[in-house]
Simulated assay, not measured.
Amino acid sequence: MQIKICLLMAVCSAIGFGAVAQTDVTEKEILGHISFLASPKMAGRFPGTKENKKVVSYLIKDFKKAGIKPVNGSYVQEFIAKIRVKKGVTDTPRVKTQNVVGFIEGSDPVLKHEFIVLGAHYDHLGMGGPSSKKPDTVGIHLGADDNASGTAALLEIAEKLSANRKDLKRSVLIIAFGAEEQGLLGSKYFVEHPLIPLSAIKLMLNMDMVGRMNAEKQLYMGGAASFDGGMDLMKSLGPQVGINPIVIAYDVGGSDHVSFYKKNISVLGFHTGGHPQYHTPEDDIAHINIAGEKLVCDYIYKAIVSVASREGAISFVPEKKD
């Protein structure tokens, strides 16, 4: 299904939102987003809950503010998520949840029909459950790093991309995935029910736990060799931003970009490393490196602009296994 764009509405929207969207990523806004998403009031952003729905409304509001357009008239892609339960439990709940999807149109009349996807999951574990590292503890799992950090980065990078859309030849699809913690369900649903042809997606960049940059300023990424020129590009961007990228050829990991990689789409999966607070109630905002996350955002922004503005084709390169 192709995206239908009303020119008049697009022009009006650009006029209406252009003065609001900021042209740069700010630590203040990163902090604001994570403070909201990882607050106790959001109760761990569990799929199907009223708090999860509040997050969806928050994301849509921010998309609109940044001038990010809906896809086929809607920002919401609803799906049913099967909730994980403890081993031996046979009554498996199913709840309605959502992906939040918008796009920024590229400026090139031909290349704008190709897409770069920027994604992050916004859900977390709620009060704990079988995926918690403290499964017998009932307490709000705030999920500041996992993945309020990635969601905040998604919103900030998307806002800057929208404000500087003239620099993009290709279009950018922005997706906040639901139910990732239940088994990558939001991204699996998207690739099985794509809102644009999968053949039009040339690269998917995913951010999952990008809020704990260490003193060495390391940012890890898997999949850099899955598109032509990816390894050299991602290494070259590090000095420009002032970080030390750990560029991994494949080893694409276990987050939402895997759903795209299984469809033979090039991917980059970003994270700043594991920590003892992972999947516990202690993953709170006090542990987040806000200045470090801004560097992550700056790096990924440069990567998107570079790939989205490339004149030549972007080709998927499968891993060669012995």
Rank of each mutant, 00 (worst) to 15 (best):
K302Q: 15
K82C: 01
V85E: 13
T26S: 15
K86Q: 00
G48K: 12
I285R: 12
G230A: 08
V55L: 13
P47G: 11
F260A: 15
N289G: 13
R212F: 10
H121C: 04
S309H: 06
K4I: 14
S131Y: 07
V305G: 10
G48Q: 11
V172C: 01
H271M: 12
L205T: 05
L155S: 03
K87S: 02
I3N: 12
P40G: 14
G254F: 10
F227R: 05
L125W: 10
A291Q: 14
E319Y: 09
I83P: 02
Y250Q: 02
A308K: 07
V95C: 10
A153Y: 06
R165A: 00
V55W: 12
I314M: 09
V247F: 06
E181K: 03
G274N: 14
M9N: 15
G186V: 04
F270W: 09
N164R: 12
A286V: 11
L59E: 04
A81G: 11
G67Q: 01
R310A: 13
A21H: 05
Q182F: 11
L154A: 01
K262D: 13
G128D: 08
E29P: 07
L203T: 09
R84H: 07
A291W: 04
G126S: 13
A215H: 13
E319L: 13
F177Y: 14
D298I: 06
M204C: 10
A152R: 11
A19I: 15
L184W: 06
G273W: 14
A66N: 04
Y220M: 05
G139P: 00
K82R: 15
D146Q: 07
F79E: 10
H124K: 02
K166V: 09
S266W: 06
V11R: 14
P276T: 14
C12I: 05
K82S: 11
A38C: 11
S107M: 09
A153H: 06
A19P: 03
P109C: 07
G211H: 02
A148E: 08
P245N: 06
A163M: 02
C12T: 09
V317F: 07
Y278S: 01
D91G: 01
I300K: 03
K64F: 05
L118E: 02
S132Q: 08
G106I: 10
S309G: 15
L142K: 01
K169I: 01
D145T: 10
G186A: 10
G150R: 02
Q218L: 09
V296A: 04
A215M: 12
V56L: 03
K160F: 03
K4G: 08
G230N: 09
G292H: 02
V305L: 07
G269L: 11
V307C: 09
